[in-house]
Design a protein around this nucleic acid. Structure first.
Lengths: 154, 154
DNA sequence: GGCCGTTCCATTGACGCCCATTTTGTCCCA
DNA sequence: TGGGACAAAATGGGCGTCAATGGAACGGCC
């Protein structure tokens, strides 16, 4: 099972947000108590997931030669900025102030499924990002379509 | 479980700092009473950990040929500068003046998880180092992403 | 006797845990 | 096909515990 779809949820007065139930069930199957998170590298969003995501990070770092500079940088930038958030009995987490600041989150967040992981966005920023991505996809499709003399259409 | 995330904590008037609770629990599981520390080789920071870290150092040195210059230097640089700090009942340590000087620490420190070990930084220096490491990682990721069909070789 | 380091105790605020309420979506039945 | 009951999800809040911090008490050493 994978993380799909997107949902916007509110933070309560204590800064808690419910993880969408479908995501929770994926995490549960992954067998991980908590939520592994880190700031997305090139987006103002938080990457989140369970064991699968953590293993991915670990593998990435383990591929680098021991004691190499690249490995040190990876470990610092990834492990150093990661958090394992606790999930309460109702399936909620509290985002650290650092995460909220990085993603520009105040009182609402968008959970966005990306297959093996998901992201947490400030809803407005996510809409913008999505619109941009959609445009790119349209352009790509138009480009692909133009190469088919038959006038292929979806 | 591993050391992840970063936390900034204050030193009190006696020079004591609390080890972040999540780190403490990792150390406890490691079954090591105290905190094994030494100056990081190529960063103005202190490497710290428990049995796992000590074993790593031991292995590193053991890999060098007996009586080799490299081995002597490693042993001197690592064993010679290591300290096992005492942890008090509240989970605090007192950094030696040598460590503080080496890392430029005065009244605050950043604890930074690196997986199997963690580092202790002067917070401002850590921010700078993190920014640099993040840039490097972005470049690395861009490089990996560029290896598409028809493009760069593996 | 004073200084220094260690252990123990007190305070404060944040967080974890528990329970109540509201909202949403679904299914069943009239 | 509309209404209503039911279940699941999301939300709100109270309270106890623990982490971080500060300071006092104790003991040894110079």
């Amino acid at each position: 099972m994978q993380f799909v779809s997107n949902t916007v949820l509110r933070l309560d007065s204590k800064g808690r947000v419910s993880i969408p139930a479908p995501f929770r069930s994926v995490l549960m199957r992954d067998g991980f108590d908590g939520l592994y998170c880190y700031p997305a590298l090139d987006q103002p969003a938080i990457d989140a997931g369970g064991n699968a995501l953590m293993a991915e990070i670990e593998t990435l770092i383990a591929q680098q030669p021991l004691y190499s500079v690249a490995r040190d940088h990876l470990a610092l930038a990834l492990y150093g900025t990661s958090e394992t958030l606790k999930v309460d009995a109702e399936g909620r987490v509290i985002l650290t102030s650092h995460f909220k600041e990085y993603a520009g989150i105040s009182d609402q967040v968008a959970f966005v499924g990306l297959g093996h992981k998901f992201q947490i966005w400030e809803p407005e920023r996510f809409r913008a990002e999505l619109a941009e991505a959609t445009d790119k996809v349209r352009a790509l499709k138009a480009d692909l379509g133009a190469r088919k003399p038959g006038g292929a259409r979806e």
